[in-house]
Design a protein around this nucleic acid. Structure first.
Length: 557
RNA sequence: UGCCUGAUAGUAUAAUGGUAGUACAACGGUUUUUGGUACCGUAUGUCUAGGUUCGAACCCUGGUCGGGCAACCA
């Protein structure tokens, strides 16, 4: 019952605001993605923060699509984003679009012009950049800075009415070309783009810049706490300027450090390159750090939420170990996944003292972590089994707990066996091993007095089903693939996807597609091999399982 | 040479003037019909130099180092 709560710095601010009655104690946040790509785990951090804050302080969160650039945005992305947010378990109060505010933003611009705080500039992009100076060199005025209010009004209206070509003119805020903050050196606020917008179609040919839309959108919605990442810190004075000059609701922005994770990249631009260059199969390739990729890989919403909770919120640059995400998915799946057996690299075992043609049916629990095992399934056992090739060693080292000549091992939920001999082919590859089983060592009623150090998984050769198994691993071999001058794509892990076409799985797994219909969250632990889920491409005729994550391996041999 | 911002174990994150704690990772052990799980234990940390104070991770000053800022992107 300890009420020990440690707050992150944004929660501290909110609690203080609630205490002092700022915004009447109201908390309204927003999640503002641009629909120009798929959401990734970094966005999940922001989603969990924004929606989590609202949940914690009995407020609400708007989902607002920041769609001010018609060239890059698409409804495909809108749909995927909504799907991902829902899947993570969050509900927004309003689904909104910055494009809903285009008319209002246009009027804001006119307001600014009338206050002599904005002007139409005919300079080229190059000229404007030239005149802007550098962080250490002050900017200079362009020849158009002192146009009259009425001329600016006329020109801006002409811009809207399509009288000019792309790039011919822009609208700029008139602030301070000498400012040490580059964003205050007369930033562009409207540009001409004769382009079709995913929502407004051809209604507009001028579009507001992000910096002229974001702060005002927050204000229009009366967002109380506008949370974003660190790189926007220097934009804040600009947003505050517009809010003040336009006399809008004073939304306040707070910045936190974005998520970085080892062995992956976290920018939409780079992720898009991977997709476009065919280095992964799509945005939802299970190797991608996208929400849709993680979902297809088998991650659960809870595991991602717990991860986001644990990494915390702060302002310092960070690099989270990929292993932390793995920890949370293992923690979740350990409690829920059904145990099954699958042999990835098969080796034939023949139990010489087991009656030929006989099938014995054994019981095995679905999940030992759950009381009463979460039910059980039946396992057929016979004279010929498939075992994992690396569970046998011709010359095993001292601490090898599995099979080798003369060694004993338990077959999970079955019997203890002893390896008596083995045969090799012409290339020296072991093709079969011969074992003796001990009938009195049957699982659950063992009276043999024998003890086996290890336990192996196995599958009756006669009853084995086939499946394709896709083994996924980290996408990059470098901890920070985008940290050096070298192309990040050079660091792609060639082993990030290993496909096993003909793995053997236990017969019950043939029901996996049907089970998934009844239990959409069904996951499997292939004993000793890791956590797996049925891939979306799988069918009853062609089973495909994706490896979400391996089991932790304390042996590391 | 400007402005903004930050610095606590390997990685993150607490401690808000009073015993530097937690998680992951690492290592060791116990249990185990998964070399999984569970449980127990070990090691590793306040960037630096001063100052204020009975007492500083915390407050002040200087330094060092990191990140960001000059797209008609968001």
């Amino acid at each position: 019952m300890s009420e020990e709560k440690s707050l992150n710095f944004i929660e501290e601010i909110i609690e203080s605001d609630i205490l002092t009655g700022k915004y009447d104690g109201r908390v309204l946040t927003r999640f503002p993605p641009e629909p120009n790509g798929y959401l990734h785990i970094g966005h999940a951090k922001s989603i969990c923060l924004n929606f989590g804050l609202a949940l914690k302080y009995k407020g609400a969160t708007n989902l607002r699509f920041d769609d001010t650039n018609p060239l890059t945005e698409d409804t495909e992305y809108v749909e995927s984003i909504k799907n991902d947010v829902k899947w993570l378990g969050f509900t927004w109060q309003n689904e909104l679009y910055t494009s809903d505010y285009f008319e209002q933003l246009y009027q804001f611009a006119i307001d600014l012009i009338k206050q002599n705080l904005a002007y139409v500039d005919d300079s080229t992009a190059d000229e404007i950049a030239q005149h802007k100076g550098t962080p250490t060199i002050p900017g200079r005025e362009t020849p158009y800075r002192n146009r009259s209010v009425s001329e600016n009004l006329t020109l801006f209206e002409a811009m809207r009415n399509g009288k000019f070509a792309d790039g011919e003119k822009v609208l700029r805020a008139k602030i301070d070309l000498q400012s040490p903050n580059m964003h205050l050196r007369d930033p562009l606020i409207y540009r001409i783009k004769h382009a079709t917008h995913h929502r407004t179609g051809n209604a507009w040919c001028i579009y507001p810049m992000y910096d002229f839309a974001h702060g005002q959108s927050d204000a229009i919605e009366k967002i109380t706490h506008s949370v974003c990442t660190l790189e926007f810190t220097t934009h804040r004075p600009l947003y505050d300027f517009f809010i003040q000059k336009l006399n809008l609701f004073p939304s306040q922005q707070y910045e936190f450090a974005r998520l970085n994770m080892s062995y992956t990249v976290m920018s939409k631009r780079k992720l898009m390159q991977l997709v476009n260059d065919g280095l992964v199969n799509n945005w939802d390739d299970p190797r991608m750090p996208t929400i849709s990729g993680l979902r297809r890989r088998g991650f659960t919403p809870a595991s991602i939420r717990n991860f986001c909770e644990r990494i915390g919120i702060a302002k310092r640059e960070n690099m989270i170990d990929f292993s932390l995400l793995e920890f949370f998915i293992r923690e979740d799946l350990n409690k829920t996944a059904w145990r099954r057996m699958a042999v990835l690299e098969p080796l034939k075992m023949i139990i010489t003292n087991f009656e030929e043609g006989k099938t014995e049916l054994l019981e095995s629990e679905n999940n030992p972590e759950v009381e009463n095992g979460d039910g059980s399934r039946t396992l057929p056992f016979g004279r010929e089994l498939w075992i994992e090739r690396d569970d046998f060693m011709e010359e095993p080292p001292k601490k090898f707990f599995r099979l080798g000549p003369g060694l004993m091992c338990r077959l999970k939920s079955a019997y203890i066996v002893r390896c008596d001999s083995f045969v090799k082919d012409a290339n020296g590859v072991v093709t079969e091993i011969y074992c003796t089983y001990f009938p009195e060592s049957k699982s659950g009623s063992d009276t043999s007095g024998l003890k086996a150090k290890g336990t192996m998984h196995w599958i009756s050769a006669q009853h084995a089903q086939k499946a394709e198994i896709r083994l996924y691993d980290r996408l990059f071999t470098a901890e920070q693939p985008d940290a050096s001058d070298q192309d990040f794509k050079d660091f792609i892990n060639p082993q990030s996807l290993v496909v096993i076409k003909n793995a053997y799985i236990e017969p019950d797994l043939a029901n996996a597609p049907a089970q998934l219909v009844q239990h959409p969250d069904r996951r499997y632990q292939f004993i000793r091999k890791g956590y797996f889920c049925l891939d979306k491409e799988a069918s009853a005729q062609h089973l495909i399982f994706n490896r979400t994550v391996t089991l932790k391996d304390g042996w590391a041999g």
